[in-house]
Computed example of a mutant assay.
Amino acid sequence: MIFFFLTLLSCGSSIIVDANQRCACSEILLQEDCNTIMNCKWVNQKCQDYIYECQVEGQADIRTYICNWNSDLNRYEAQKFECSQFKNLYDCSRLKPHCFWNSTEMCNDFTSCQDYNEQYCPIYNKNCSIQDKICIDGLQQCENYKSEQTCRGIQSGEQECLWSNDNQCKGQSLVDCTSLTGFKVCDVNLIECKKNAQGNCESLTCSDKKQENDCTNARIVKHGEQIFYLCVWQNGQCYEAINAKHLNRETCSKQTAANYKWVNNNCQACQTLQPKILDRQLDGYVEYETQIVIMYLSTFILSNIAFFILCIE
């Protein structure tokens, strides 16, 4: 919260959207926006709160179920899946930490570290690490890796192995972009960072976006948060937006992570923002662009998921 307040002070009138929050369902007036927001559903010509829930009978392992929409019954249903049914790496990877792509180019439940090659070694999801190009049991201390090529993986739940400017493999907690100052890389784990003229790592800004189709937002990197500057394309350059007038009916909610709503032919800030994952929500979820894939996960598994990556275009 302190970080968010300081950011507001430093960026003046720039618009900041929080991808962990969304507009209250009751404020949404468009059906197309309502039905793309988690925990909202269009009912009786209104956008209303809705809990996406799937029931699993008996003592079944809920980690082997996904929650899918049954259009015939007009409801979500728990559907059992087997990792082996996923035939490509992309589909298999979406079901981590349950399914893994192994050395035989097949999707299966996790077995042991030795069943995975260097490329697919689950170093971020299981207690596996790479030694002499072999996937082995147990996490390694970063200093055990002696070259930039082998310096990868984690040595604890918070520290990732990174190759430093003084040519050593060191464990580093990724809090924000400045955490990567002093290391060779400045863009790990899909975070938007850059090296400045002094060689320090800092967050990308709207002005770093050089293509119009990429000029939608710029992520403010902070561990556990998904906060963005709203960007606007003007006169061939990308700037931080000071209002949302450039957004239309189709882009208003989408490009502001549902922090704004379309009202009276204008894109306006929502009066009430709520967490995208409610305390009473029983399902975990992963959101890819405008399509929502709901995964039925236990509370234990949810507590161990570090990030929810929201891809906003």
Rank of each mutant, 00 (worst) to 15 (best):
E148S: 15
Q149I: 12
C151P: 10
R152D: 01
I154D: 02
I154E: 11
S156W: 06
G157C: 06
G157L: 09
E158T: 14
Q159W: 01
S164P: 07
N165K: 15
Q168S: 11
C169V: 05
K170S: 00
G171C: 02
G171D: 04
G171T: 04
S173A: 12
D176T: 08
C177P: 11
T178H: 14
S179D: 06
L180W: 03
C186R: 02
D187T: 12
D187A: 07
V188S: 12
V188G: 06
E192Y: 04
C193M: 05
K195Y: 02
K195I: 01
N196I: 07
G199N: 04
G199R: 03
E202N: 10
T205N: 13
T205E: 14
T205H: 13
S207T: 14
D208E: 11
K209W: 04
N213T: 09
N217L: 13
R219E: 15
K222Q: 14
E225V: 06
Q226V: 10
F228I: 04
F228C: 10
Y229H: 15
W233H: 06
W233D: 07
N235S: 14
N235M: 03
G236H: 05
Q237V: 11
Q237I: 11
A241R: 00
I242D: 07
N243L: 08
A244I: 03
R249N: 08
R249G: 01
T251D: 12
C252R: 01
T256W: 05
T256C: 11
T256M: 08
V263I: 12
